[in-house]
């Protein structure tokens, strides 16, 4: 196995059982790799399984109703799924940390932020209170909070949204994790703060030599941070590749649709493109390619057979055999 691969999710399947016993296939056979010190983006619409696949890395899927039906999650060569709760707790926050979407609600309102940052250190590292405090100040300075020492005694409601997200990042970094999962960390922030946070991620990533799994639905963010991109649709990966490959030569009709619905300067005054239809209900997915009801290129096979990944070279893969054969025929 490649030593350079930090996390390898292999054919992960996470289903949620509804009250009627039907399985809602939130993640249905997803595979992705994250190399050390790399930023990987997971892109997709709301409800396509991005967050669920990230939460299952940390074993945070509520079971029941959730159920990890199959697959492996190899972190540093070790499968995380069969681990017990205690073993998982030693990994969470310590080697894999997570930054959540809503900085406004992700901090406990009744504790000072210093205590909250120190908590993870207290759990995972055996160091005395003074060292903890120094570490907290260091972390707050790292994430760009001025007068860090005084800020340790602030309560979350005394901070702005951007500052809170910085505190969340400081909490995630507190034990020098090898992988940080960022679940739409900038969605709740305004654009200027968003840019600052993205920049901060880049800086910290280089400083701490960590890999980042960045989950977002914002293609602008993707182009700014990602080394490689995985595009998800309805619980599966439809396209993957280097950021430049995905943005310059999108191969899957869904990725193409996403990119052409971005407003650009050349499209000024025109009506924006939108993908017809809506995301399928994860409990009643269409047979065959899950995208076929919305796909402008759909043919009969799309309705019958689940599409295979087609290789475009240099790590660029897309799950659309129809366009692949079309391209090869015209070439």
């Amino acid at each position: 196995m490649n030593k350079n691969i930090l996390l390898s999710v292999d054919d992960l399947k996470v289903y949620f059982r509804g009250a009627d016993g039907r399985a809602s296939k939130a993640v249905d056979g997803v595979s992705y790799d994250i190399r050390r010190e790399e930023t990987v983006c997971l892109v997709g619409e709301s409800g396509c399984g991005k967050t669920v696949s990230a939460l299952s890395i940390l074993g945070l899927i509520p079971q029941p109703p959730g159920e990890i039906v199959g697959g492996r999650i190899l972190f540093d060569g070790r499968d995380l799924l069969p681990l017990t709760d205690e073993e998982m707790q030693r990994i969470r926050g310590n080697r894999v940390a997570m930054v959540f979407q809503e900085p406004l609600t992700s901090l406990n309102p009744v504790f000072k932020i210093g205590d909250q940052i120190a908590e993870s250190i207290r759990i995972h590292r055996k160091i005395d209170a003074d060292a903890q405090r120094q570490r907290c100040i260091q972390l707050l300075e790292d994430v760009g909070i001025a007068s860090a020492e005084e800020r340790l005694n602030a309560y979350p409601h005394q901070l702005s949204g951007g500052q809170r997200q910085r505190v969340m990042i400081a909490m995630a970094l507190s034990c020098n994790p090898e992988l940080v999962i960022a679940d739409e960390p900038t969605t709740a922030l305004d654009v200027t703060v968003q840019a600052q946070i993205l920049k901060l991620f880049k800086v910290l990533q280089q400083k701490h030599n960590m890999a980042v799994l960045y989950i977002t639905h914002d293609l602008g963010v993707v182009s700014a941070v990602a080394d490689r991109v995985y595009v998800m649709y309805a619980g599966i990966i439809v396209e993957q590749g280097q950021t430049a490959q995905i943005f310059r030569e999108p191969q899957h009709p869904y990725t193409r649709g996403l990119l052409s619905s971005l407003p650009t300067r050349s499209k000024r005054g025109q009506r924006l493109y939108s993908i017809a239809g809506s995301v399928p209900d994860p409990a009643h997915k269409p047979v065959g390619c899950p995208f076929h009801p919305r796909c402008p290129h759909a043919v009969q096979t799309c309705r019958e057979r689940f599409p295979k990944m087609c290789d475009y070279g240099k790590g660029h893969l897309a799950r659309c055999p129809v366009l692949y054969t079309n391209r090869n025929e015209t070439a």
Binding site: L60, R92, G93, M98, F100, T105, L107, I123
Partner: peptide
């Protein structure tokens, strides 16, 4: 269901804590 509970769990905090 609050986010800060999920965040605490993601930091490796145990159930009792």
């Amino acid at each position: 269901e609050q986010d800060f509970v999920a965040a605490a769990r993601a930091l490796g905090v145990g159930d009792l804590r």
